[in-house]
């Protein structure tokens, strides 16, 4: 069982990201689950989304999770969100930030000994898609860090998930994914 927890603000596309990833993984014959913590959260409120991936049917419906990967979509949530909750020794963190990894770790010494990867999904999505929608670049970074899929396979697969958008937006997302894949460190 592979478990992923997304930290995001409502409106940044964590649920869409988690469901899009699930869509792609389910096509490979694996079992997937995607869900989120909902409340009466409005746009901008901190929220979390979740993925479980396994070879056998997923029967576990608890929200509680000890994540293998923690994906932080909003730069501020690394500071104010409890992103290390229920972590294990080898939990990997992919954090979107405008800071270098060194600068981030200086500000957040509690992450110092952990497996932290950083990139700026906000800048990438603004420069490619034209809006701060960090979810698809985060998936590009996840592909690099996890090795879940070859990046070309993943980009090809996500075209179908994005099929309701105009070609221009699809192309911009593919660019964002590729840049994130290359820029995450």
């Amino acid at each position: 069982m592979l478990e992923i927890r997304w930290h995001s603000r409502a409106g940044q596309g964590a649920v869409t990201g988690a469901k899009g990833l699930g869509d792609i993984v389910s096509d490979t014959g694996k079992q997937v689950q995607a869900f989120a913590f909902y409340g009466s959260a409005k746009r901008g409120a901190a929220m979390s989304a979740y993925n479980r991936i396994d070879d056998k049917p997923i029967l576990n419906h608890e929200k509680f999770m000890i994540p293998d990967y923690v994906l932080v979509l909003d730069p501020a949530l690394a500071f104010i969100g409890n992103i290390t909750a229920n972590e294990k020794e080898d939990t990997k963190y992919i954090i979107t930030t405008h800071l270098s990894k060194k600068e981030l770790l200086e500000k957040l010494p509690n992450l110092d000994e952990k497996r932290v990867y950083t990139l700026d999904c906000m800048k990438i999505s603004q420069e490619t898609i034209g809006r701060a929608i960090p979810n698809t670049p985060m998936l590009g970074a996840l592909m690099k860090v996890s090795g879940m899929f070859e990046i070309d396979y993943f980009k090809n697969a996500i075209i179908k998930v994005l099929s309701k958008f105009p070609q221009k937006i699809v192309d911009a997302n593919l660019k964002a994914i590729q840049r994130a894949y290359e820029e995450v460190v």
Binding site: K19, G22, S26, Q31, V32, Q33, A34, F35, A36, Y38, P57, I58, H61
Partner: peptide
């Protein structure tokens, strides 16, 4: 069906 736990959770 269970609200959210099933209605808003995607699976195969």
């Amino acid at each position: 069906q269970d609200g959210f736990i099933c209605s808003h959770t995607a699976q195969n």
